[in-house]
Design a protein around this nucleic acid. Structure first.
Lengths: 325, 325
DNA sequence: GCCTATATGTTAATCGATTGTTATAATATC
DNA sequence: GATATTATAACAATCGATTAACATATAGGC
């Protein structure tokens, strides 16, 4: 591929001048600019961003680590992050950790090695110690991290409360809640917390179940859900920590001959696409994914430019009532 | 961040020696290696990949341009591509074109400017002329491109045939097919082609509709579908070019009081997650996304290493029968 | 004819690594 | 003990751009 030197030679100028023209610095004659434009066109020149980044301190890349791309919530999140990154002149280096600690660590090495401007972490198995050695801004989403630069999350607890309140208002007496992965603490656990508090306050019987990594990875909760409904046949309302789970709960109910919402009320979480594609459509807790994504990217930029950055940003959620309650 | 020079100073050696140790070339004393290890540990050194790539000819980045991340088919595709890329030592630079030509062009500039090893293109609005100037391997997926290095696709025509055959075998007499975006020619159009051929051969009445970009971008087909079903009330079978569309068709049928599969049979395309989360679950044409993704990444690698690369790879599809037929 | 503003050339350093060539030790061989 | 061999490092060029310092050249203004 053609280099600046080639362009300079072709245009009959020196690299210094051509670079000046490219970057609009100093004095430039329209004549020279024309010659350079022609030469670039002719040689199909495109500045080597690698060389440029080497000269500058960092790149305009944001490393993004998610546990799953296929999961609609993350697909939605990635999409919004990409969008905002594009607007701000960043590009996204996409890393799918699959919740594998080793892979996550490796990706952190790759991202820092590539001198990314910042790191957005939606995945959470890595030891926080790893991050003491990361010297670029780290924005966590739905993940605890003492050493992180900042954290963006939705009001998970409020979400759990909304779900519990709704189910109880619908007349449910025996609730079942399936939460996030039991082995890894994360902000999403607060959904359970909020749910629990309301149930206790209102004196409603409830069962709490957490999922296993395997189920999370395969997006396959039907067996767990079925066994739970068989184990607790008196259940008349469920709060699931994701819409994917809730959609599967619907299928399980159908299999077991339970009508929703007549025999069973269901509340999901996330409010992704599928929530309105199931039959009946899901009542769910809406996460402001777009705003969270925008804030995350903006925080990276602020942190890079040395601005003071809020340690924690919590956005409100809201209940979207559809047909399962 | 610490550089090689810092490590060398710390270890009391020169950069050349340290580099040699890092890359295991030439003679190295265990003493020197030890000192370097210590220095790296102490300084938290991580090689600057930007500098490394500058020296080498290209990076190990693959540029990936998709029209949508949120669309479950692409989410699935991205996930599989990322996976294979990781296995092969590549990283993914993710670009969401939103089917906007200008954005696509800009991304191509960014990708080539960053000296990516190759480009995987799942999006298709850009003028093919643009690619005459791209000097890295370009693998297209579900997209025509004369100047591309290679193309990977599923047997779209066969998919259309399977769908038509199934609907006809179910006894449908008046079919409706909603295809891809009318204004942009793409391999997926062959689904329509295959569908049409079978209908004609079997003498079955059918209506063909194409979608608009706006609907594709918003993943919102319900209004179109509803108007079509009202316009063609005799319709008793539908073939939709994606599962997202098929899932929405189900909702529209429900709204119009049509039972599926009794009054209306439905066949989708892609076989993504939602296909088994709708009620009834979708009969659909399965695309071998994983294999397509693996092949695409492998083709990039082969092209980079100068291997001869097949111009076109077509993978078979298969019908997955669920509950809508 | 001098000054100034404009335009470009020249030269060289820099970013952080890789790598070929060369220099210097340490050890082995006869 | 001289010579060959092997081990270990230093030195310097290179990748492709940016940028600063300084020199030079042309033009117009007064």
């Amino acid at each position: 591929m053609a280099t600046l030197k080639d362009v300079a030679r072709e245009a009959g100028l020196t690299v210094g001048t051509v670079s000046r023209i490219l970057n609009n610095r100093g004095y430039i004659s329209s004549n020279a600019r024309e010659k350079v434009d022609e030469a670039m066109e002719k040689l199909n020149y495109r500045p080597n961003e690698v060389a440029r980044s080497l000269h500058g301190k960092s790149t305009n890349t944001i490393g993004l680590i998610v546990p799953h791309i296929r999961h609609p919530y993350f697909a939605e999140m990635i999409s919004n992050l990409e969008n905002q990154a594009y607007k701000k002149g960043y590009k996204i280096l996409l890393c799918n950790s699959q919740s594998i600690q080793e892979k996550e660590k490796e990706y952190i090495d790759i991202i820092t090695g590539n001198r990314a401007a910042g790191l957005i972490l939606c995945s959470g198995t890595v030891d926080t110690k790893v991050f003491q050695r990361v010297d670029i801004p780290v924005i966590t989403m739905e993940r605890f991290l003492d050493n992180g630069t900042a954290c963006v999350e939705c009001d998970n607890k409020q979400g759990g409360e909304l779900a519990a309140r709704k189910l109880i208002a619908c007349g449910c007496k025996n609730l079942l809640h399936v939460g996030t992965i039991g082995t890894i603490p994360m902000p999403a656990d607060m959904r359970t917390e909020g749910f629990r508090e309301i149930c206790q306050k209102k004196n409603i019987t409830f069962v709490e179940v957490s999922t296993e990594e395997e189920q999370y990875n395969d997006l396959k909760y039907d067996e767990l859900l079925e066994s739970m409904l068989i184990k607790y046949p008196e259940t008349d309302g469920m709060f699931l920590s994701s819409d994917v789970m809730a959609a599967q709960a619907l299928q399980v109910c159908r299999k077991l001959g339970l009508s929703v919402p007549e025999d069973m009320k269901i509340v999901g979480f996330d409010d992704v696409n599928i929530a309105s594609l199931t039959t009946p459509q899901l009542t769910t807790v809406h996460q402001p994914v777009k705003e969270m994504a925008e804030i995350a990217v903006n925080l990276i930029q602020d942190a890079v430019t040395g601005k003071l950055v809020p340690k924690r940003t919590v956005l409100p959620v809201r209940l979207v009532e559809r047909e399962t309650t």
